[in-house]
Design a protein around this nucleic acid. Structure first.
Lengths: 211, 211
DNA sequence: AACTCTGTGTAACTTTGGTTACGGATTTTC
DNA sequence: GAAAATCCGTAACCAAAGTTACACAGAGTT
């Protein structure tokens, strides 16, 4: 664990903090599709993402759902951060997008480290800022972009976090993430294929050229 | 200024911090419609809202715009907070929704106070959390709600921050905030009037019953 | 091979909301 | 008080995307 910690967070945290994380943190390995957090669930520990990607979703009470953003290596869940003050429940759902490795830190340490380590404070603020920007980006997408553009952005993001030009998923699952219907996704994908931008297969989309 | 500061923030901050704010902060009074912050502008000081309301808008490059949320007494701009690390430009636009009083604090103090005062840290974290929740709320609105519901929510929010059942604005301005067209707003408002939920006038909407 | 299940392609239709256009009402300006 | 500007109501039309329905293909099961 120390090894992984250093690789992902060594440049961010001072040695004393790295040591503390090593002492109190627990290592966790999850496979693709694992649900790390559900809406309404209480948060007892804070994840530091070491490898892989996590997708963060928003659901409403009628089963509607929407992808907010992906977390990648070096990221943490900003929602968790607020839970040191006030025993808040989670407002989001988190699913492992790929196999992932995390270090879980008990939230009791949060308050302590925030006053003790400047590097931790900076990290927390930077996380907030980053997530804030992701949220703005999401708002831009759903408010200003049409579905075809959103789909292209989605494909690009998904390719980026998986590190592959070939995406393995179904049209239905994409429809859930984009909060639209399967038919619409199939329709728009077919258009992209006719434009030579992607190649479609069963459970598979190969990105050829999304400029 | 000390008086106003105590009223709005006295229960949050310890005396020493209140004193410091009193020393380095400057008092600012703006009238309705005043633009406090534009996109791309650099941020030199941090506002603590003492009275009135501020509306926070997102614009894209094509002149599209969307209301994100309102700030009220005791709130601060979470976007500003991140600017102590990295000289970031503003990603949002802020307009005084009503006449408002603010205390402006130079951002250099941010870092200092964050390590010095626990109450300040808590305030900053709580602000982040609050704004995060507002953003989620905005996302819920534009992703899951239809325009008629969004309009009703908008009217309610606007009535709340102004503290009046009568809203003074034009259909066009509402259309900007909701990122739709004037015709659509007029159409939906007329429906609400026919349902006996509002009463319409020139530059005026009186809320009768939005349940 | 026959059957089932899941994923995809496509057509037809509906709904929501965006656009254009124009007329009337009220307010502001000169 | 005439002219100009602003605001609102409404109709007609259009485009995007959501819905329903069904056919077919491939993968897995028996």
């Amino acid at each position: 664990m120390i090894q992984e910690l250093k690789e992902s967070y060594g440049h961010l945290f001072e040695q004393a903090l790295l040591d503390e994380i090593g002492r109190v943190g627990t290592f966790k390995e999850v496979s693709e599709g694992f649900q790390l957090m559900d809406i309404g669930q209480y948060i007892k520990s804070m994840p530091l993402l070491v490898s892989g990607a996590i997708k963060i979703l928003r659901d409403d009470d009628e089963g509607d759902e929407l992808l907010l953003y992906f977390l990648e290596r070096g990221d943490t869940c900003a929602m968790t951060l607020t839970c040191c003050l006030g025993e808040t429940k989670s407002e989001i759902r988190a699913i492992a997008e790929t196999d992932a490795k995390l270090i879980m830190v008990p939230i009791q340490k949060m308050e302590e480290w925030t006053s003790k380590y400047k590097s931790w404070r900076d990290f927390v603020f930077k996380s907030y800022h980053g997530r804030m920007m992701e949220m703005l980006d999401t708002i831009d997408s759903i408010a200003f972009m049409k579905m075809d553009e959103r789909l292209v952005k989605y494909l690009r993001d998904k390719a980026k976090v998986s590190g592959s030009k070939t995406i393995h998923t179904t049209h239905q699952d994409m429809a859930y993430d984009l909060h639209t219907s399967r038919v619409v996704v199939s329709r728009l994908l077919k258009t992209l294929e006719n434009q030579g931008k992607v190649k479609l297969g069963r459970n598979m989309i190969e990105i050829l050229d999304l400029e």
